[in-house]
């Protein structure tokens, strides 16, 4: 477990600033394929309405459907390989705000009723894995929306 976490941590090198280098994902996941099948965002990003972080799905979530082969794609086979080894899929985080920003998904999704694509872009159209953010999430971008909707612009709400 510790090794897995270290791999994950070691793999993180994304800076949420102007130059956003792209990462490579372990599996070429297609958001479009899953959304077309009727899966809503919160099926996999489970804590989007209950917690600050939306989180990525664990292997257990994927295996609920992919226990047996649904397609003959070798990418799908990788899920089962990871599961067999007892490892989590080492997804690389793409949307990551800097550590001095404390963002709450719960507040924006459950209370603010903001649709996912407003901040994350047209993820539903992606057929291959996300490797760079579709939306440039800068503070000025956050503030413009906050000002437009009359939400708080008090610094204390996001910076601790």
């Amino acid at each position: 477990m510790r090794a897995g976490a270290l791999i994950l941590l070691g793999g993180l090198c994304v800076c949420a600033c102007n130059q956003t280098p792209s990462v490579s994902q372990p599996i070429d996941y297609s958001h479009k394929a899953h959304i077309d099948k009727g899966l809503a965002c919160e099926v996999c990003h489970q804590s989007v309405e209950t917690a600050a972080a939306a989180t990525l799905p664990t292997n257990e979530t994927c295996m609920m459907c992919h226990q047996g082969a649904i397609t003959d794609s070798p990418e799908e086979e990788k899920i089962r390989q990871y599961a067999e080894r007892g490892e989590q899929i080492p997804w690389q985080r793409v949307y990551a705000l800097p550590d001095h920003v404390f963002f709450s998904h719960r507040r924006h999704v459950k209370v603010g009723q903001i649709a996912c694509e407003e901040c994350h872009g047209p993820m539903a159209k992606l057929t291959s894995a996300l490797t760079y953010p579709l939306v440039d999430q800068r503070m000025s971008w956050c503030l413009s929306c906050h000002q437009a909707r009359g939400a708080t612009t008090d610094c204390i709400h996001c910076h601790r």
Binding site: P98, H100, T152, D154, C155, I156, H157, H159, R160
Partner: peptide, 15 residues
């Protein structure tokens, strides 16, 4: 450093 009008707390943004 700022004064939060909504809470009355003096806060910090370290970066």
């Amino acid at each position: 450093t700022f004064f939060s009008e909504s809470e009355g707390i003096v806060g910090q943004v370290y970066p």
